[in-house]
């Protein structure tokens, strides 16, 4: 846009659900990168923290015809009337105009959890406890991401620590434009299936923008109009239908830890 601030980007992802084999590497890479502690012994789907969570969704057919789609679900980076932003009484969530990333500032959060209720994707998590690592593992934290305290909400921010590093690298060369190769979120990097493509949706020539425009690409709950910047791809009709269906919470999630 303007030279002083560099070009405005809209970072987004396209995830190929036909490639994802549910190995879970992205979930672990994410937790290690973003200093998400191991779940407490009583943590459940509801009380644990998984910025990136891969759900195994069954087609509902019988053995042996049953089919499974693995759906990585995380902050969808909604662009339009972002539900969590509009409900936050603290201005602790904001959308960065330069990157399009929905940011969460834990220091501002007062822990009302309104955002968690508002999020249609269940992508927000609450720190029910102090972050605790076994002794020694707390010295293996990623120095680029600060751990969050008890009583605040958190979520995926497209590995903002890595964006910082990419920007600093560009700045050292005197540039405001980051090299796309320097900014790759941990989940994308860890995906051996190359199921996740990440990049700037504003750059029409980028792979992610091309895929987002392509056939068989869709977004989850697009009827809500929140314009997520995370796209999914599948050629399986039942998977596409699932994207618009209202998901019922699993029994495990509803259960109390």
């Amino acid at each position: 846009m303007d030279s002083e601030h560099g070009k405005n980007a809209r970072f987004g992802m396209v995830i190929d659900l036909d490639r994802c084999d549910g190995c879970g590497a992205c979930m672990i890479a994410c937790a290690v990168e973003n200093n998400v502690p191991p779940g407490h012994a009583s943590a459940t789907e509801r009380t644990g923290i998984t910025w990136m969570r891969v759900a195994a969704v069954e087609s509902g057919q019988e053995y042996p015809a049953a089919d499974v789609a693995f759906v990585p679900m995380f902050c969808q980076q909604c662009e339009n009337e972002t539900p969590c932003i509009s409900v936050c009484p603290q201005n602790a969530v904001e959308i960065d105009p330069a990157t399009g990333i929905v940011g969460q500032i834990p220091q501002r959060c007062l822990g009302c959890r309104y955002c968690m209720t508002a999020c249609p994707y269940h992508a927000r998590y609450f720190n029910w406890r102090d972050p605790a690592w076994p002794e020694g593992m707390d010295r293996q934290l990623n120095p680029d991401v600060s751990p969050r305290m008890r009583g605040v909400a958190e979520k995926c921010n497209f590995c903002h620590g890595r964006l910082h590093a990419a920007k600093a690298k560009a700045a050292a060369k005197g540039s405001r434009e980051i090299d796309p190769a320097d900014y790759v979120p941990a989940c994308v990097e860890s995906c051996f299936q190359n199921a996740i493509v990440f990049g700037d949706l504003n750059d029409h020539e980028s792979e992610v923008a091309k895929l987002a425009r392509g056939a068989d690409t869709f977004r989850f709950l697009s009827r809500l109009g929140s314009e997520p910047k995370v796209y999914f791809h599948s050629t399986r009709p039942w998977v596409k239908e699932m994207a618009e269906s209202t998901l019922t919470r699993s029994k495990k999630e509803n259960g109390h830890g």
């Binding site: 601030h5 904001e94 105009p97 990333i101």
Partner: peptide, 12 residues
Amino acid sequence: HGRRDGCIDCHK
């Protein structure tokens, strides 16, 4: 200097 920055530009 007219910078427009988001919170997470300076917080990690």
